[in-house]
Amino acid sequence: MESTRKILIVDDDPEIVMLLQIGLERHGYEIISASSGDEGVETAREQKPDLILMDIMMPGINGLEACQIIKNEHELRFVPVIFITARGSMPEKIEGLSLGDDYLIKPFNIHEVIARVRSMIRIKELTEKLEIATRAAAIGAAAVTVNHKINNPLAALKLQIGIIKQKLSPEDFARIEPNLQSITAAAETIQHITQKLSSLSENPDFISYKEYLDGVQMVDVDQAELDSGKR
């Protein structure tokens, strides 16, 4: 039995959906389905499947158009799309493979479908691991730079705060103590963030991101800290 993976079947023929569902469920896959390209796109957005089996000729937007939309979604860009269609000419195959990840002709052999599904899911998992490793390496390089360029000035700043405390009279110190405490707290916050970035580069599984600006993401240091604390 396969470890549970979610597969979305997008086809307007209920008999095809049933045939694929029976064959795949026997191998432990979780199956969800949609009967049109539009519904397939919405279901993919909501359910985040591990793989999509997509017909091409369907009501509304066709499978090729649905695939393009899905591949342009940031969270779905690595989800493999295998076309399963009656369109079998060479130009049609080339068009399908230029948009999706694999192409099967109806009538199909269910054992071949399962083999292709396994292969595509393995590729997806390796691609995701590679992206995580690449991001971790980038964060690691940034963390080293930050530690070198920021921690040294921070240490000097905290040292100067200590010297100021020693040189001030009790009356003068009492007047500016809240300001010094604010500066010290800000310096410690910056130091904590740099330390957390260094830690994340060594533990990429904890890295998570959040939207900073439209189309721009930032490392969610606070969430990563919560996630690491759960383990």
Rank of each mutant, 00 (worst) to 15 (best):
R122K: 13
V81G: 14
E42M: 10
D11L: 07
A34K: 07
K6S: 14
E75S: 15
Q160E: 14
I52W: 09
S228Y: 09
P204V: 01
F78W: 02
T43I: 01
E171R: 11
A44E: 06
N203W: 05
V144D: 11
I61A: 05
T127C: 01
L180F: 02
G37M: 06
V17Q: 15
Q21H: 07
L159Q: 13
T85H: 11
G60V: 09
A138G: 04
S3E: 13
Q217W: 08
K106C: 00
I114E: 06
A155P: 04
K149C: 06
F206T: 08
K165Y: 05
I123E: 06
N72Y: 01
I139E: 10
V219M: 02
R87D: 01
M54F: 06
E73K: 13
I31G: 15
A141V: 03
R116P: 03
N72K: 12
H74F: 09
L126T: 12
Q68K: 15
P80E: 04
Q160G: 06
I70Q: 04
D12T: 05
E128D: 07
S169Q: 12
I84N: 00
E95C: 05
I183A: 15
I132F: 02
V17P: 09
V216P: 02
L20W: 08
A141Y: 13
E177Y: 10
M1G: 09
Y212D: 04
V219R: 02
M18R: 15
I31N: 14
I69C: 01
Q68A: 07
I22N: 02
S201G: 07
E125R: 13
Q166C: 06
L104K: 09
R77W: 01
Q68V: 05
P80G: 06
M18K: 15
N72L: 02
I7G: 13
P107I: 00
I7S: 12
E73W: 07
P170T: 03
E177D: 14
F78T: 08
I70V: 14
R45M: 10
D214L: 09
E131F: 06
Y29W: 11
I7F: 07
I22T: 04
N203G: 10
R231C: 07
R26T: 02
L213R: 15
I123M: 10
S3A: 08
D222I: 13
I139S: 10
I32Q: 15
G40I: 01
T4W: 00
K165I: 03
I164P: 01
I105P: 07
I22G: 00
M218W: 00
H111C: 10
K106T: 00
A174D: 13
